[in-house]
Simulated assay, not measured.
Amino acid sequence: MLAYVRLWHGALAATEDVSDQQVEAFIRQLAWRDFDNYQLLYFPEMLTKPVRPEFEKFPWQPADAQLEAWRTGRTGYPLVDAGMRELWETGYMHNRLRMVVASFLIKHLLIDWREGMAWFEETLLDLDQANNAMGWQWVAGSGFDASPYFRVFNPILQAKKFDEDARYIKKWLPELADIPVHYVFQPADAPVDVLEAAGVTIGTSYPAPIVDHQAARARALAAYDTCKNS
């Protein structure tokens, strides 16, 4: 295993085809990884229980068909589905997508972060136990220096921002390949003639959204308030 300090010096020495911003981002991830291992060393219980005790009473929903839809990339949200299908086929997913799909499971579906952590443990080829546990608790809001629980990723806006030409979505969701980019981020809202021309039937060839974004966000915030005030 390469020592962190060697990677750090190597990053600082990189000059070709690498911007200062990219070097800083890489070093920042090294720092997070070091912090993750520190957490696991001194707080091994983070693998099984929330670091912040108020989350012990969080009203998680049963892990049912919605968990399976998330695992298999059948949520009706193209960016989430593309990420989950890439994970299953390759054992890899970009860090941005890991946050998006984790947020969706935890905050849109109110499914316990430990379910997602376990699925990543089963599927990621680059699995790092400390990083995985910290990442899930960070998204859930229950870990050290965690993301605020009210930060709920909008998977539609995330897709438009980071996959604006839908190249990634269409690669991993070939059933949506012929839908114009303007409609591909929300295929269920596309006009019938557009769907017919693309050979897509919502609910058959591609699922309808399993939750409404705004309703799910409101439910998540209400659940957090219940947990916080209990």
Rank of each mutant, 00 (worst) to 15 (best):
A3P: 02
L7D: 09
W8T: 12
W8N: 11
A11Y: 13
L12S: 04
L12A: 08
A13C: 09
A13K: 07
A14E: 12
T15E: 15
E16R: 08
E16M: 04
D20P: 10
D20I: 09
Q21W: 01
Q22M: 07
A25S: 11
A25T: 13
I27C: 13
F35C: 09
N37E: 14
Q39M: 11
Q39C: 12
L40C: 05
E45I: 01
E45T: 07
M46H: 07
P50W: 15
R52Q: 15
F55I: 02
Q61V: 03
Q61H: 13
P62C: 10
A63Y: 01
W70Q: 01
W70I: 01
R71F: 01
T72I: 07
G76W: 07
G76C: 04
G76A: 06
V80D: 00
V80Q: 02
W88E: 02
T90S: 10
R98D: 00
L105M: 12
I106D: 14
K107F: 04
L109S: 08
I111L: 02
D112E: 14
R114S: 06
E115L: 08
G116L: 02
F120Q: 10
E122D: 13
L125F: 11
D126V: 14
L127Y: 15
L127N: 07
N131Q: 14
A133L: 09
A133E: 07
M134H: 13
G143P: 04
D145Y: 15
P148D: 04
F150I: 01
V152P: 04
P155G: 07
P155Y: 03
I156R: 01
I156W: 11
A159F: 10
K160N: 08
K160M: 10
K161S: 11
K161T: 11
D163Y: 13
D163C: 10
D165M: 05
D165C: 04
A166D: 00
R167L: 08
R167E: 15
K170M: 03
K171T: 09
L173N: 04
P174C: 01
E175K: 08
L176P: 06
L176C: 03
A177N: 06
P180C: 08
H182V: 12
P187T: 03
D189V: 00
P191Q: 03
P191E: 03
V194H: 05
L195N: 04
E196V: 14
G199H: 03
A208S: 10
A208C: 07
D212E: 14
H213D: 13
H213L: 05
H213S: 11
A215D: 12
R217G: 02
A222W: 01
A223R: 08
A223S: 12
T226Q: 15
C227E: 07
C227K: 05
